[in-house]
Amino acid sequence: MAIRLFIDGAAGTTGLEIRERLQGRSEFELLVLDDAQRKDESARRDALHEADIAILCLPDEAAKDAVRLADGAATRIIDASSAHRVAEGWTYGFPEMVGHEAIANARLVSNPGCYPTGFLALVAPLVRAGLLPADWPYTVNAVSGYSGGGNALIDRFEADPDIAFRAYGLALGHKHLPEMQAYAGLAHAPVFSPSVIPAHRGMVVDVPLPLAALRGQPRADALHAALEAQFAGSGLVSVAPLAPVPGEMLLLRSATPWDGLALHVCPSADGRQARLVAVLDNLGKGASGAAIQNLNIMCGLPETTGLRL
């Protein structure tokens, strides 16, 4: 019997990419609302109660409302918004970090944010291993394709070809910071500098480290070895060789959907500094791909089924 699946917010960017990854998959029966029903609370409530699993691709407040509408049902929920990422009772949907069993047994799963996916993959294992201090004032420089900003930002970039670069979050306090701090086990929220470029998809997350100034003066090869150990055997996360350091990293306007995550440790020649760099698709492992991965795990299916790898 097919698993009944409802995507609340299926017409948005994340919802559309989830549906693309589900094409041809007979394991699921997709519950679909027409344009009029999508905004009808009663129709949404019925679908949320009828589904075995619901994926929420909604703004934060709408996601909270959807959880309210699902109250009383046994429906399992994957929330792609940031509404529940540090909420009590929700499992953080990063299986490589929290464990696949935790996702498999959860009823409520909150997808990680796109930027936090890169940051946490780089930093959390190293803090846990005692190689990086939990009380260091970390900084994060990151750039994303404009699709991460939703339909409004997509329309703005595509209507104005003169935009070359957009820095934002200048007042600090970005909504991704709570999960970045909590799941990396940090004493302080990092200073986060996000930006957007005129490419539809793609993301680079860069954490610079003054190794010689850190407590214990960790070596780049030790950081690299710890990341390799954390993600050994992963079908989605890869750790690039420590050497040679790549001359450049590119985000391409022509990039196609990709659900992987590539991690790099780039040390200086004298070993006194390093940059930890994550490369991913903000719509892939940063959103829709992660939702499908969690869906597969929750349903007891191979986690990479339907993913673009």
Rank of each mutant, 00 (worst) to 15 (best):
R25N: 10
A129Q: 11
A167D: 14
D160S: 11
S144Q: 10
R4Y: 06
H200N: 02
P133V: 05
Q273I: 00
M97Y: 10
A10W: 04
L309C: 10
D206S: 13
M203T: 13
G15M: 07
A63R: 11
E29G: 09
A199W: 03
C266E: 11
G149N: 02
R215S: 12
P194S: 09
C57H: 07
A54K: 08
V127C: 02
R219Q: 14
L126C: 08
R4E: 14
E248H: 13
G216E: 02
A220G: 08
F157Y: 09
A10N: 09
A43K: 14
H49T: 07
I292P: 05
A36L: 15
G12M: 09
R201T: 14
E101N: 13
R275Y: 06
M203G: 09
S193E: 14
V204T: 10
E41H: 10
E17W: 03
I53E: 00
K285D: 07
S82D: 06
N282Q: 11
N296T: 01
A167L: 14
L236T: 13
L283E: 07
P244D: 02
Q23L: 07
S238K: 13
G118A: 08
G284P: 04
P137I: 02
E41F: 08
G216D: 10
S82W: 04
A164P: 00
V204F: 12
D35W: 11
R128C: 03
R128T: 08
P241E: 10
G72W: 07
A74E: 15
H200R: 15
R19H: 02
Y115G: 12
E101F: 10
L33G: 12
V265C: 14
D35R: 15
F157E: 02
L5G: 05
P244W: 03
A229C: 07
A106Q: 06
F192I: 04
G286W: 01
I53Q: 03
I18P: 01
I77P: 08
G99V: 06
S193I: 08
Q181N: 09
K64P: 04
A104G: 14
D135S: 11
D281T: 07
R76F: 05
R85C: 06
G284Y: 01
R201Q: 10
R215C: 01
R107I: 02
A262M: 14
A274R: 08
G185N: 05
R68D: 15
I154R: 11
L30V: 14
G247I: 00
A129L: 05
L131H: 06
S147G: 04
L250T: 13
G300E: 11
T91M: 02
N294Y: 00
Q23H: 05
L33R: 14
G169R: 08
G289P: 09
L153V: 13
P210L: 00
L307T: 11
V245Y: 10
L223S: 08
G118E: 03
T14N: 06
L251Q: 12
M298T: 06
P133S: 10
